[in-house]
Simulated scan of single mutants.
Amino acid sequence: MAGKRKKSDGEEGGGGEDEPVIKKEKTKKEILPSMIKNKDKRSEIHAKLQHQKKLDKRKRAKARDAAIKRALELGEEPPAPKIPRTIENTREFDETVCMPDDEELFAGNDADEFSSIMNRERTPKILITTCRFNSTRGPAFISELLSVIPNAHYYKRGTYDLKKIVEYANNKEFTSIIVVHTNRREPDALLVMTLPNGPTAHFKLSNLVLRKDIKNHGNPTSHEPELILHGFTTRLGHRVGRLFQSLFPQDPDFHGRRVVTFHNQRDFIFFRHHRYVFETKETKQTDSKGTKTKDAKDKVSQEKIKARLQECGPKFTLKLISLQNGTFDTKGGEYEWVHKPEMDTSRRRFFL
């Protein structure tokens, strides 16, 4: 027919035998579960995708374990373990992060407000009081703080102004003041003040769980606890950590097996109080095949000592609101650091 076009040399059957035949295949567009309007079908597709992800993850884990086992058998170095990507290890760069060789930081520790307690020149003596309008859980929380912090004393607030309390505490040689603020019958803030020259830290308190509400809790002894501070990496965090450290004596009694922990994570400070418990368990000796021996002479029990933690309580979470120079002053006080809403520009920006 006249209307038909002749095949060129490069087309199929036209003499270009050495050249491969190229056929354009239409790529199928991937269908996501969110693109499906039917709810039942969308749930079914989503469940299948999640199941396939689990299978792939399990397959990768088995391959990784096999590679490690093969490397150990051949005497080679096993592959490096993968580090999960978290908000903590992807935090924004902060130039105030303390380095181990920061000589200026350690030189400043000998001249700050906490140096006399850290050098054991003064013994910590803590005054604990409340706001003017106390709540029902406030006294219970304070009584547990008295059992946690050694050499702590409770004084009823009454109608006294906070400046009068600071003056009285200085005359009685107290080293710190803790004010428990309550709102709607619940403790919601802590004011920690170092005497005589400050600083004063204001914390928001949340997630308070008293000792009686903790399952299988332990009762603390009168031994001076061991203090653990973790996650205070910046200059501000270092200063807040020393503030907490100044509340406790610097010579813990390890025989009491008491541990007080301040763990900073994403600028939330988690407080925990534990005791070490050592348990002795007897296990019957078995032969090489894994069966228990029947001979009475061979029935030798082996004692194994296992250590575990028993929570004593209370437990709560703190978040730093402000750090003020000197003692508490709402009108003319100068602040070292104040948290503002406009500072929360990223989930990966931390200050402690």
Rank of each mutant, 00 (worst) to 15 (best):
K281I: 05
G290C: 03
Q310S: 00
R266N: 04
K331T: 15
G332D: 14
S322C: 10
I305N: 06
H273M: 01
R275G: 03
G313Y: 11
Q302H: 02
E279P: 01
H273T: 03
H263N: 11
T261A: 15
T317Y: 10
F270G: 03
K284N: 08
D287P: 02
Q310Y: 01
Q302E: 01
T330G: 06
K297F: 05
Q310D: 06
N325A: 09
L318W: 05
K331W: 14
Q285L: 02
V259S: 06
N264D: 13
T280E: 07
R275K: 10
K319E: 10
T261N: 08
K292Q: 12
I269C: 06
F271P: 00
E282P: 01
L318D: 02
T280G: 02
G290A: 04
K297A: 05
S322T: 10
K281L: 01
Q324I: 03
K294E: 14
Q302T: 03
K299F: 03
C312T: 08
S322V: 09
F268Q: 15
Y276K: 07
T330R: 10
V300F: 05
P314R: 08
L320Y: 07
V277T: 09
A307V: 15
K294L: 12
D267C: 01
V259I: 04
D267V: 06
G313H: 15
S288R: 07
L320S: 14
K294C: 12
T286E: 01
H274A: 00
E282I: 02
S322M: 10
F271Y: 07
K315P: 07
V260P: 06
Q310M: 10
T280V: 03
Q265T: 09
C312F: 08
K281T: 02
L320N: 13
G332Y: 11
K299L: 01
G313W: 09
F262R: 08
G326S: 15
V300Y: 08
K289L: 00
R275C: 09
A296I: 00
F262W: 14
Q265V: 13
A296M: 04
K306Y: 08
D298S: 14
V300K: 13
F328V: 14
F271K: 00
F278V: 07
L320Q: 09
L309H: 12
K281N: 02
T317I: 14
T317G: 07
G290F: 02
D329C: 15
L318M: 13
Q324G: 00
Q265I: 15
L323M: 14
Y276M: 11
F270C: 07
K319A: 08
F270Y: 13
E279C: 03
Q285D: 03
P314N: 11
H273K: 00
E282S: 01
V259G: 04
F328T: 06
L323G: 09
K299D: 04
D295I: 00
K292T: 09
E279A: 00
K284S: 12
D329M: 13
